[in-house]
């Protein structure tokens, strides 16, 4: 005789509020990726530059062993620019399959048969990338500034650099948003995560190579805006108030990134559908 009724019973519990439904998707994505050992190794590796910077900061400020190292806004911008390599790898590892795998497994029908909108779905998936891309950028960037304030016992550092956290926040968010939205849009193009990863990598590499060819031919860095990475650097230089590395106008870099983001959102809007309609 069964000790527990295993038959179907109607459910009459309490529903969660709809505005946070996207968080379910984000949480699940973080759980799945967090269980992958190789991904964890990658995340640990991405923390190494932060540890090196911490040691440098300590040696420079507390022990005074690195007299040539200046702790200023550029120190933090350099750190974030350095982290872009890891951001690129993590975006591909975590993001290439986010939508592509759902398309392959026909999972969109499952999602949209529940009270989930396309916006919830995209926000949920973006949340996964935001989380994993914030870990090597925004979080250590802010921690680094906090440590600098701690190690520099005088108030003059804080007086001179009080605006740097806002720059760290702005630059990190720009990097995270660009990589996340573009990666997600590329992921929605195909059922193959490998294909999505290759296309995303090609987008960054080829734009960089194209810029290098153009800069040699024209003997100028005015065409830096054709490279996605250069556009981020240009805006980063502006945010951290350092002299720009390239001669291309700031507004052009901002416009290129803006258009890229808008195009990606448009692509997501058209590719993420409950029903694939062939007209």
């Amino acid at each position: 005789m069964p000790i527990y009724d295993l038959s179907y019973r109607q459910w009459s519990g309490v529903w969660t509020s709809h505005p946070y439904r996207w968080w379910v998707i984000t949480r699940q994505g973080i759980n799945i990726l967090g269980r992958k050992r190789r991904f964890l190794v990658l995340m640990i590796l991405s923390a190494l530059p932060f540890l090196v910077r911490c040691v440098m900061l300590y040696l420079s400020t507390v022990l005074g062993r690195i007299p040539l190292l200046t702790i200023n806004a550029k120190f933090f911008e350099d750190f974030l620019s350095q982290q872009m390599f890891f951001v690129f790898i993590i975006a591909i590892y975590a993001g290439a399959g986010l939508i592509a795998n759902d398309l392959k497994a026909n999972a969109l029908q499952i999602y949209f048969s529940k009270p989930i909108t396309r916006r919830d779905y995209v926000m949920g998936k973006l949340g996964v990338l935001f989380f994993f891309l914030a870990l090597p950028t925004l979080v250590p960037g802010m921690l680094l500034f906090f440590l600098a304030v701690l190690f520099k016992s005088d108030a003059s550092f804080l007086e001179q650099n009080y605006w740097v956290p806002a720059s760290v926040l702005g630059y990190s968010l720009l990097i995270i948003a660009t990589y996340s939205v573009v990666m997600l849009a590329v992921s929605s193009l195909s059922k193959s995560s490998r294909f999505a990863g290759i296309v995303f990598a090609a987008l960054f590499f080829f734009s960089r190579i194209f810029y290098q060819i153009l800069s040699v031919v024209l003997r100028s860095t005015r065409v830096a805006w054709v490279s996605l990475g250069n556009n981020l650097t240009q805006i980063g230089d502006y945010l951290f108030q350092v002299s720009p590395q390239y001669q291309s106008p700031l507004w052009l870099s901002a416009m290129v990134l803006g258009l890229l983001m808008l195009g990606s959102v448009w692509l997501l809007h058209h590719r993420v559908q409950a029903v694939e309609v062939v007209k």
Binding site: T16, A105, I116
Partner: peptide
């Protein structure tokens, strides 16, 4: 159709959460 990388319990529980269950 299924959601990749999940066992049956996680999958069905996830479907419930998408519908708004705790």
């Amino acid at each position: 159709c299924h959601i990749p990388g999940m066992n049956a319990v996680s999958f069905v529980a996830y479907a419930g959460q998408l519908a708004g269950m705790k």
